[in-house]
Design a protein around this nucleic acid. Structure first.
Lengths: 219, 219
DNA sequence: TTGTAATTTAATCAATCGTTTGATTTAATA
DNA sequence: TATTAAATCAAACGATTGATTAAATTACAA
């Protein structure tokens, strides 16, 4: 499971061939698409190489093995979002409507990168370790204490309904931020949804509203 | 994907050997546990047979192939819940607090059968068909129109906050019913939750409360 | 141009996959 | 007891898996 071996591209001091790292990034893109769609075990390294228009040996060359490829793909995919979320929630003085801004950043990112929700869900659900620990660490720093504390602060400020347990509210918020996107293909059939242009806006507003005081009025 | 072949246990007119179907049910149990924990592609038919203390050929004998085993396992696992949910929501005259009763049935069942949430999530997320269609059909009848209409009825009766779109509320309800259970192992680490005896009750109440008017009081 | 390291190809390794075969055992029927 | 069918087993099938290598090719510094 853990990669205990030597590093690979032995100190690429020289750039060559098509200015490059192009094959590497194409492998990452192919891996992201295939792993998101079919899951880790169902995707062969040959399939990734084919989809990237490369040779299986290139995976060994750049990433040592299948796990190394998967790990690099996850980091490449989620690092930007995790960093932006962290800096947003860790800010000493929150701007206006921080909960909504977290929701917006989260949902718009997932909406724009459809491969993210499946990857998140698979990592969350996967019983075996693989990258579960790495993934937990990624989302633990900005997602756990920070989100719970953000909710507490917003409750204290009177911006959020106070009758909710902060920890459960944080868990609910994440649930509502992730699941609907991963379930979109199915939900559109099950619930007969017509995913129109304003769907994302309506979903964000709806989710935010759940944590606010109900008005009793129709939306 | 579709099994186009002949049926297998050729008309079991005779019962034999340990009164039987025991191997069959043990294969189903092993498949349920392993597929839930590791996913379809990551589990070999040999592993299932070993865990069931049976011979690999018995899978072919009872279920024709790996997909047949998986399909039978899904049906065996979810049919009871689906039926109970359907009859609860389709009742002409709902009893008191039907939303809470749906939540209770759903969550307590998932809580008592830890393999269900991973299976649901995998089926929802799986891009390829396999049993996605079957699964959608299972949850479409009781889960779609019925749940949405139930929410509308409860809104009309003044039992549910009226400022929520019924379809989005239905999707949110399902999200909150499924995701926290599947995420439990991770969430307990990320959110520092201590899953105590009353955890399920508190989660149910919290989720129900989200769809009610906020009181502004601490819980 | 030549030397050298980076990159890519083709080929191959042992291991494991899902599946099937053919023979055997068990138990009910005639 | 003889017959028959269901159930089970050990063994092996061909195909594919992840991984690795040796050799060929490329690009750039000297």
């Amino acid at each position: 499971m853990t990669t205990q071996g030597t590093p690979l591209p032995r100190k690429a001091g020289r750039r060559s061939r098509a200015d490059n790292a192009e094959v590497r990034s194409q492998l990452l893109a192919a891996a992201r698409s295939l792993f998101a769609k079919h899951g880790y075990a169902a995707v062969s390294t040959r399939a990734v190489a084919d989809a990237a228009g490369a040779n299986p040996a290139m995976i060994h060359y750049y990433f040592r093995n299948k796990e190394g490829l998967y790990e690099a793909m996850l980091a490449d995919t989620f690092k930007p979002l995790v960093e932006r979320l962290g800096s947003l929630m860790a800010a000493p003085d929150l701007g206006p409507a921080p909960i909504r801004r977290v929701l917006e950043l989260y949902m718009r990112t997932l909406g724009a990168n459809p491969w993210m929700p499946p990857l998140i869900l698979r990592e969350v659900v996967a019983g075996d370790g693989r990258l579960r620990d790495w993934f937990i660490r990624q989302f633990a720093s900005p997602g756990s204490g920070l989100l719970t504390r953000l909710i507490e602060r917003e409750q204290a400020a009177g911006h959020l309904r106070a009758d909710l347990n902060p920890t459960l509210a944080a868990l609910s918020l994440v649930s509502l931020a992730v699941f609907p996107f991963a379930a979109m293909p199915v939900a559109s059939e099950v619930f007969g949804m017509r995913v129109k242009d304003d769907y994302l806006d309506r979903l964000i507003s709806h989710t935010e509203r759940l944590f606010m005081q109900g008005t009793g009025q129709k939306p």
